[in-house]
Amino acid sequence: MAGVAYGTGRQALLEAAIRIVATQGLRGLTYRSVAAEAGVSHGSVRYHFGDWNTLVEEALAFCVERSVDGAELASDVPGFTEFATGIVSLVAADPDAQAFQYEITLEARRRPELLPAMERVNDVYRAAVHRELVRNGIDDYAFAELIFMTLDGLVFHQTAFGDDARTERAIKALRALLASYTAEHVRS
């Protein structure tokens, strides 16, 4: 593959797909556009992913893995003082990865075949939030859903508007709410 180091082509294609969808929407995602963005032949896209749906699903999985790790939802410290410490830097460092996921989510309204993939993505995020709540004594799926949706909204707003300070303030307030909820509802 010209211009891409051996062994990095698949990742370069995933990153190219993410950038294209983030900037042009899902309609801009073609084998040719991904190949051009990655600096490879368009046959490479088919070789690595086989079909368009697989490319989209694998790009989603790639984003989710990086996002869950980067958001730093889990902590070794008891309580919520470090909960979601990486969200602001995650979005600031790679807003395209978040925009990609939101573009796919919105497109799933028009293309129901994308809904199962987006539900799997959201299930990964929900599970990460739920694990951290359980670690702190809160085993409540409805509450975990509320926290997941709150974080999702914070990420969306930071992705769209780029206001790191506002997101930091909101996460700080969320941590305080979690600590208060824990003190009131969790018995040691």
Rank of each mutant, 00 (worst) to 15 (best):
A142H: 12
D76M: 04
F156K: 06
A128W: 07
A12Y: 04
K172Y: 07
S188Q: 14
L146E: 10
G7V: 04
A61P: 00
D51C: 07
V155S: 10
S44Y: 13
V121D: 00
A2F: 15
R46L: 15
E82D: 12
E37S: 10
F83R: 05
Y102V: 10
G86D: 09
R10S: 03
V40S: 11
S180C: 11
F83E: 11
E58Y: 07
E15N: 12
A92C: 04
L178P: 04
P78I: 07
D123Q: 12
P78D: 03
L60V: 05
L114Y: 06
R19L: 07
A179W: 08
E168D: 13
T159F: 01
D51R: 01
Q11D: 13
R166C: 09
D96A: 14
L14M: 03
R169Y: 01
F100V: 10
S33A: 14
V64C: 13
H185T: 11
G7M: 03
D51I: 01
A22L: 08
F100P: 09
E103W: 04
R109C: 08
G39S: 10
E103S: 14
Y47S: 00
S67E: 15
T105A: 14
E107C: 06
R109W: 15
A176W: 05
R111A: 14
G86R: 04
P95A: 08
G43S: 07
A16H: 06
T81H: 05
E184I: 03
A17R: 11
L115P: 00
I104R: 04
S44K: 05
G28I: 12
V45T: 01
F161Q: 06
V34E: 09
Q24V: 04
Y102P: 02
A170R: 14
E65G: 14
T150A: 14
D140V: 03
R120Y: 00
R166Q: 10
E82N: 13
A2T: 11
R111P: 01
P112D: 10
R110V: 09
R32E: 15
F156V: 09
G43I: 06
I87F: 06
A99S: 14
E37I: 03
A128D: 13
E145I: 06
E168F: 05
T105H: 10
I104Q: 00
D96G: 08
F49N: 00
L133F: 13
T81W: 01
Q158W: 03
D96W: 05
L29S: 04
R19G: 03
A183I: 00
E113A: 05
A35G: 01
L151P: 03
P95G: 08
E37C: 08
E65S: 14
D139T: 08
C63N: 15
G9R: 11
A35N: 07
M118D: 00
A117C: 01
A160R: 10
A144Q: 05
L177D: 13
E103I: 00
A144V: 06
R109G: 12
A108P: 01
G28Q: 09
A71I: 07
D69H: 13
L146V: 15
A92T: 09
V124Q: 12
L151S: 01
A108R: 00
R131D: 10
Y47A: 04
L177Q: 13
D139G: 08
A74I: 01
V77W: 07
G137Q: 12
G79D: 06
D123C: 03
Y102D: 14
